[in-house]
Design a protein around this nucleic acid. Sequence first.
DNA 1: TCATTTCGTACCACTTTGGTCTCATTTAAA
DNA 2: TTTAAATGAGACCAAAGTGGTACGAAATGA
Lengths: 159, 159
Amino acid sequence: MFKLSKLTDYGTVLMTELALAPARLQNAHELAQSTHLAAPTVAKLLKMLAKAQLVESIRGAHGGYRLARAPDHISVADIVSALEGPIALTECSVHQGCGIESHCGVRSHWRVINDAVRSALEAVTLTQMSLPLRSGGKGRAVSLKQGVPIHFSPSQARG
Amino acid sequence: MFKLSKLTDYGTVLMTELALAPARLQNAHELAQSTHLAAPTVAKLLKMLAKAQLVESIRGAHGGYRLARAPDHISVADIVSALEGPIALTECSVHQGCGIESHCGVRSHWRVINDAVRSALEAVTLTQMSLPLRSGGKGRAVSLKQGVPIHFSPSQARG
DNA sequence: TCATTTCGTACCACTTTGGTCTCATTTAAA
DNA sequence: TTTAAATGAGACCAAAGTGGTACGAAATGA
């Protein structure tokens, strides 16, 4: 239903926890405790994040994980791509072959929308995610600039 | 994998087709032919879209469907919500109860991201989707304003 | 050598999705 | 009144995806 998987949700929690102490080496067990997530799930996530080179893994005794880059150089889009694959709202956003492609006038539009969503996710860094921001409780603690993020210029399309 | 369902994809194709002739009444069979989608699928989609009041249905002989509103008053977000339910990237974007809620510092951030994505989808109307725009073929036919759509103001969060 | 910890992969239960089908209801025309 | 055309509502099923778990292999430090 147009939502991220739970693993991705947990992944951001995990990455946020790591961002609180970027230098410190933490193993999967510690992180499971501090995030209140199930240990096997944490281990699985860390492996995926390591493969995407978002976290650095040190094997062996006293090993563990730490962020591979500074928190402000990791975006939510990075985490989402790492755990769900490339951001593609529709099949034809990336590769073709949806069956009705030749008659499909909406394909290129979806690509634009896709880019807009991705840039929205790229705009939020791990640093921002780890800021408190929940001090206000249930209320609207942040101000969202409601400007229209997409700008269609069909007249310039090979004009 | 963070993507819309195929039905939603087809739904936009269907709505775009309807937008080409907003006044004309078209039945499910006709629409299946013009969009090259399977007839039962089209019928199912139209029912869902009618329930969401995006299309108007006229029953009986010579019945059919037409848009319930002008194409520029229907957004992609409307179609997505109709076919996938409310736009909620994460569980906690809308309702709580994710288990680790009390320790979860990222919840309110996800709400902001969620709003950004939704506004990106709201910004594109059916009118825009039905414009040709594919004249350039594979290339980048549109210009996407790459401005950062999200603006965090954590310092203003309960000052 | 041994304990610790990550790595890779396989596995399973469960849910969701995509697609089809059937029957009831409504309406216009014969 | 009867018939045909069309939507409405829901059940059904195969296939794919998701979440969670388990187990042995490899690496590292004591």
